[in-house]
Amino acid sequence: MPLLRITSPHAHGPMSTSRVMQHVLLATVPGIIVLTHFFGFGTLVNILWGGIVALACEALALALRGRPLAFYLKDYSALVTSTLLCIALPPYAPWWLIAIGVASSVLLAKHLYGGLGYNPFNPAMVGYVVLLISFPVQMTAWAPPRGLGEVPGLFEALLACFSPASFDAVTMATPLDVLKQNNSLLLEDLWQENPQFGRWGGIGWEWASLAFLAGGLWLLYQRIFTWHAPVAMLVAITAMAGMFYDNGSSASGGSPLFHLLSGATIFGAFFIVTDPVSSAVSTRGKLIYGAMIGALVYIIRVRGNYPDAVAFAVLIANFTAPFIDYYTQPRTYGHARKGDS
C-alpha cells in the first residue's frame, strides 16, 4: 500500500462541529427540565415535533441543493436551531405554528443563504420573529406556571399540539407583558397584584433562567464559546436596567435582577448570542456585539411594541457583526499597533 501524502498538520484536536452541536443540545437539558416542571410537557412536545420538522426541512433543502444528506444531517445543526426555537416558543403551541417557525428557520434563514456557516442571521431568531409578527396572538399565549393553574399532562400536551381545536388552553400574560402594560402601579404594587411574579422575576421563569445559566456555564467550561459576548450582554442589560430603575415607579422598566431573570435574557445570552455563525468573531468584536444586544434588549423591552426583545436585538446586532469584525481585527504578531509608528 503506498504511503498517504497529506500536508501538515497531521494531528487534529478532539473537537468537531457535531460535538459542538451535541454539547449545545446537552446544555439545554436542565433548562428544558425546569420549563417542563413549571409549565408541563408543552415545551418538550414542541422540541420533539420541531426536531422532526427541522430534519425534514434540512433533508429537503440538501436534496434540492444536491448535497450529501447523511454527511450534513449528522452535524446536528438543524436540531440545535429547532431546539432553541422551540424552547423560545410558548408551550402548547399548535403544530402548524411550530412547523412554520422551524421551516422559516431552516429553509429561509439558513439554506436560502447557503446553508450552515453562511447565514448572516441567527436562524432560530428569524423563525421566532417570523412567527411573532405573523401570529402575535398565539405567540404571546403562555401557559400559567405550576401553582397558578392546572399543569397539563403529556397527553394534553400532545393534544394541544396536534389537535389545537380540541384543547382549551389556559393562558396568562408573561411577567414582561404585565410590566409592559403597566402604567399606573408602582412596581411593588404590581408585584402584589399579579400572581405571576416570583421572588426576582416571574414564577418558573427565574428558575428556568438559572437552569439555562448552569447549562451555559457548562458550555463555557467546555470551551464551546468564550465568555465575552454573554458577559457583555448581561453586563449591558444590567447597566441599562440599573440606570433607569428609579426604585420602582410606575414608569420604571424593572429592576436589573428582574431583567436578568425574565424572558429569554439568560437563555439568549448563552444560547443565542453565542451562535458563532451570525455573531462577531474577534474578541473585542464579541464584547461590542454582546453589549449591543444587551442594550437593545432593554430598549426594545421598555420602549418597543413587543414584550420580549431578545430576538429583535439579536437580529439587529447580526446586521452589524461584519462591520464590527472589520473594525476590531486583532493586531497581528509583529505589526505595530495602529497609531504607533
Binding site: T17, F71, L116, G117, Y118, F225, T226, S279, T283
Partner: peptide
C-alpha cells in the same frame, strides 16, 4: 471531509 466553517473563532 471538511464541514462548513461555522465561524466559531476557535482558530482565531
Amino acid at each position: 471531509p471538511a464541514q462548513a466553517c461555522i465561524r466559531c473563532g476557535m482558530c482565531a
